[in-house]
């Protein structure tokens, strides 16, 4: 049993190629579409009555909305609310992909570095483009905080620039590594169960790794939510830098 087999991308349908690039409908793409379908379906189903007195599902959807709206408002201010659809899309996409990935035998889209790196670079690009569009060269104040003594300035600028450039890296690798490590750990412990069941009298020990797998699954559910939340809140914090570079 190979714990990294679950991250294997298997082509489902060849669509053709542009130059050297082959475009294939893969299992990963299928899970991305599943995520979209779940989001759209749940939202439309929950909001079908659009009633003022919400039902169970509608109040769940509304509380998620309120939760992200509060997060955006708290970390990026009232101005940041124009980025609310973007932050909510990121949160919903990552959360749904993480939770879909927890279902056994499914595929975790967010365990693909290319997916998380694209999302992180998208955030990074929006921060840079919006920052320069909104504040012009004033955006560079971000790297030179006021109040620092003059002789320290070059050092601070270098450190701030480094931490700024590390942001997309840390944002993408954090999500990717959490998902990857969690799923590998799950696969390893589930593999122990399978091995013990197939190992004669040792099968009496099989419930131990099974219990561990269940506990890890609960932990992974927490991590799945937490990583989506961390991605969203860090996006808000970075957008706040673009909105108010003079901190």
């Amino acid at each position: 049993m190979n714990p990294i087999e679950q991250f294997e991308i298997s082509p489902l349908k060849e669509l053709g190629s542009i130059g050297a690039y082959h475009f294939i409908f893969t299992n990963s793409a299928a899970y991305m579409f599943l995520c979209v379908a779940i989001l759209v379906g749940v939202t439309l189903y929950a909001m079908r009555g659009n009633s003022l007195v919400p039902g169970r599902l509608q109040s769940a959807v509304e509380s998620v909305y309120e939760f992200i709206a509060d997060t955006v408002r708290q970390s990026a201010g009232e101005e940041g609310m124009k980025f609310f659809p973007f932050v909510f899309s990121l949160f919903a996409f990552i959360l749904l992909c993480n939770f879909i990935g927890l279902v056994p035998y499914s595929f975790t889209v967010t365990s693909q570095i290319i997916v998380t790196a694209s999302l992180a670079l998208l955030v990074f690009a929006i921060v840079i483009i919006y920052g320069f569009w909104r504040h012009g060269l004033g955006f560079l104040h971000l790297f030179a905080p006021s109040g620092a003594p003059g002789w320290l300035m070059p050092l601070i600028v270098v450190i701030e620039l480094m931490s700024f450039l590390l942001r997309p890296l840390s944002l993408s690798v954090r999500l990717f590594a959490n998902m990857l490590a969690g799923h590998i750990a799950l696969a390893v412990f589930a593999g122990f169960v399978a091995t013990l069941v197939g190992a004669g009298v040792w099968f009496v020990l099989a419930p131990l790794p099974l219990a561990m797998t269940i506990a890890l699954l609960a932990l992974e559910a927490l991590v799945a939510f937490l990583q989506a939340y961390v991605f969203a809140i860090l996006t808000c914090i970075y957008l706040n830098d673009a909105l108010h570079p003079h901190h």
């Binding site: 890296l169 840390s170 954090r174 961390v230 860090l234 808000c236 914090i237």
Partner: peptide, 24 residues
């Protein structure tokens, strides 16, 4: 505590960067 949650996550992100670098 509520008002400092943003700072908490900034600190968390900064601290985790180095773990991510070593993982990289």
């Amino acid at each position: 505590a509520d008002g400092q949650r943003t700072l908490l996550f900034i600190g968390f992100a900064l601290a985790e960067v180095f773990g991510i670098v070593s993982m990289l």
